[in-house]
Design a protein around this nucleic acid. Structure first.
Length: 592
RNA sequence: GCGCCCGUAGCUCAGGUGGAUAGAGCAGCGGAUUUCUAAUCCGCAGGCCGCAGGUUCAAGUCCUGCCGGGCGUACCA
């Protein structure tokens, strides 16, 4: 477990500059402990590669005009020319540093080196982090809201792995409680109706068309077919998914409670198989599918309750048992055992998260919908009460997705059975486009997803621009090979020969990759990745299209240098596309 | 009522720990091009960054109060 410094090479550069500045400050009687030197990347490239506001911060204290002070500091600074090409004064008193091209090239080559920049950012020490996302109720097909969660969760898992954590994707299945009974009763009612019996459809039952279809199937399936369907769940995560004995006719004849249970079991089995397949289609890989029913059977729910009780975090009032959530910042206390003796969902959730902690995860990240944000405080409070470290559970709220079709918002309501399913989305726009578009917005902003636009597959779609840039580079390299030029691994000698501004603009963007990955991971904002490769693709296109100059030209050395730049660009695009789970094609068919 | 999120160009949105002239895509207008696959590139136009105060050398960014929109506020899950 190496205690690697964050972004080693970047830090080295910053230390170099800071030490240089500190040395220059000595004659003003300012020392390290007096000042916090901040180096930042200027927005405007004309202002160099790194910049400090030091003179403005110190101006007042030293009784000097910031701009003059900046000049004096800059004059006294001594830095190796191989790293810093120039130090300039600008604006109200900024000191701007411009990096030497050779140094930028070194950073660029690190991106190609397996032990280079991308290894330097692996600072997580292989700590295990649990990332739970989607966890949709198993009462219907996954809808598009889950698609956004899937795109985010999976990308965050890969990002955390990229910075050296051991991230673990998990899906929590709420296969217990009232809703499952309701699901079973709804399916049973549909089935009975098909068999010519008049039954009252359960109040608050599920009206989705998928249940009618499922009931229809049941009228045709025999016991063997049902068992066969269950056998699709032969992998370890799904051991709990079993077909009920017999066939639908047998279930119908059972006493109502048992009958509903059989129908529920069947519905659960079918729906889980849909959800699992949809996740696979979307490129989501869960290490664990965690079943709520297991929590109840293993008595973890009871044990969590006992533990809370022993710690004095519970009390009884009006026949219900309450958790003292208000002691932990919640507005009020919360019920864990209802007056009728049944545990609440909250209690099961406490047991679930406590077990997650006991399973050895050093940190847990949950993605929740906006309708659950009110639960964060009580959940964290319960963890705190159980002695779990305060920041152990982190909850990310993913704001709602509004689907717009024909200029109007499509309202989705699961119980009303009216929603766009994730499968439909994948069918219509493709998994890659959907993933990319979901990842263009930050998690806590509402997202308007224009279905018409996404389905159009027109050039308005940014994902095509990025894929196209990648394919174009592949084609260029193939072309070069046909002409007898094999670029091989890029070299410093060659890259230093790049003559154009457009090329160096691209270089400067490419070498940001490690920082972009680190910041996207730590801020839990994967949208920085899509923004970044969009910019990389744009800068590549500028380089590619610059007037009167081709990449494959007469001058062998120049051609090689530019091909090397292409190779690094391709590498960067690949790394990021892989992080967001989008394919990087070697070729794209151009649509007219 | 209370809590959370959002308010930036006509539209959809970016704008790490406060920095220099607030950016991009789309839509609009005008160009480039006999392609290394044009799903491209260049230019123009478009902004009281919701409003009002405050903090400071410096505020789209931080603080307070409003206004507007979304969501939540169960002995449901």
């Amino acid at each position: 477990m190496p205690a690697a410094p964050t972004e080693k090479r970047i830090v080295m550069l910053e230390d170099l500059l800071k030490n240089g500045l500190l040395a220059a400050l000595e004659k003003f009687g300012v020392f390290e402990e007096d000042v916090d030197i901040i180096l930042e990347k200027p927005r405007d490239r004309g202002h160099g590669d790194l910049s400090t506001n030091l003179a403005m911060v110190l101006g007042k204290r030293l009784g000097k005009k910031p701009r003059e002070l900046a000049g004096e500091i800059a004059a006294g600074i001594d830095l190796p020319k191989a790293v810093v090409e120039s130090v300039e004064i600008a604006g109200p008193g900024f000191i701007n540093f411009r990096l030497a091209p050779a140094y930028q090239v070194e950073l660029l080559l690190n991106l190609m080196d397996p032990d280079g920049a991308l290894e330097d950012i692996r600072t997580g020490g292989n700590k295990r982090i649990n990332v739970e996302f989607i966890s949709a109720n198993p009462t219907g097909p996954l809808n598009v809201v889950s698609a956004r969660a899937g795109a985010f969760g999976m990308t965050l898992v890969r990002l955390l792995d990229a910075i050296g954590y051991d991230a673990h994707a998990e899906y929590y299945v709420n296969d217990a409680g009232r809703q499952i009974k309701l699901l079973g009763a709804s399916l049973r009612a549909h089935y009975m109706q098909l068999m010519g019996e008049s039954v009252v459809f359960p109040e608050d039952g599920y009206h989705g068309r998928y249940l009618e279809i499922m009931a229809q199937e049941l009228t045709e399936q025999d016991a063997e077919a049902i068992v066969k369907a269950a056998s699709a769940f032969n992998d370890e995560s799904f051991q709990r998914v079993q077909a009920p004995p017999g066939n639908a006719e047998d279930w119908r004849k059972l006493p109502e409670d048992e009958s509903v249970g059989c129908f529920a079991k069947f519905a659960l089995m079918k729906i889980l198989s849909w959800q699992r397949d949809t996740c696979r289609r979307f490129g989501l890989r869960f290490e664990t599918w965690y079943f709520e029913s297991e929590l109840h059977e293993s008595k973890r729910v009871e044990r969590a309750l006992d533990k809370l009780d022993k710690l004095g975090a519970l009390y009884v009032e009006e026949d219900a048992t309450w958790f003292r959530a208000s002691n932990y910042g919640d507005e009020q206390d919360r019920v864990v055992i209802k007056a009728d003796g049944a545990p609440t969902y909250f209690l099961a959730d406490i047991a679930y998260h406590y077990h997650k902690f006991q399973r050895g995860f050093e940190h847990a990240i949950d993605f929740w919908g906006p309708d659950h944000h009110g639960h964060i405080t009580r959940m964290q409070g319960a963890m705190e009460a159980l002695g779990v470290p305060k920041d152990w559970l982190e909850v990310q709220i993913l704001q709602q997705v509004n689907f717009v079709e024909g200029g109007r918002t499509v309202k989705m309501a699961k119980r009303a059975g009216k929603f766009v399913t994730m499968d439909e989305l994948i069918d219509d726009v493709g998994a890659d486009v959907a993933k990319y578009l979901f990842l263009t917005r930050k998690p806590n902003s509402h997202l308007d997803f224009d279905l018409d636009l996404a389905k159009e597959q027109s050039n308005e779609n940014p994902v095509f621009k990025v894929k196209y840039a990648h394919a174009r580079i592949c084609k260029l390299i193939r072309r070069a090979a046909e002409a007898g030029i094999e670029p091989g691994q890029p070299t410093a000698a060659s890259l230093c020969k790049l003559p154009d501004v457009a090329e160096w603009n691209l270089v400067r963007e490419l070498i940001r990759l490690p920082q972009v990955i680190v910041s996207a991971a730590n801020s839990r904002e994967p949208h920085r990745l899509t923004g970044y490769i969009f910019d990389v693709a744009g800068l590549f296109n500028q380089f590619y299209q610059r007037p009167g100059s081709r990449i494959l030209g007469e001058d062998k050395e120049l051609t090689l240098a530019r091909l090397h730049l292409c190779v690094v660009t391709r590498q960067v695009l690949r790394v990021v596309l892989e992080l967001i789970g989008v394919d990087a094609p070697e070729e794209l068919e151009v649509k007219v």
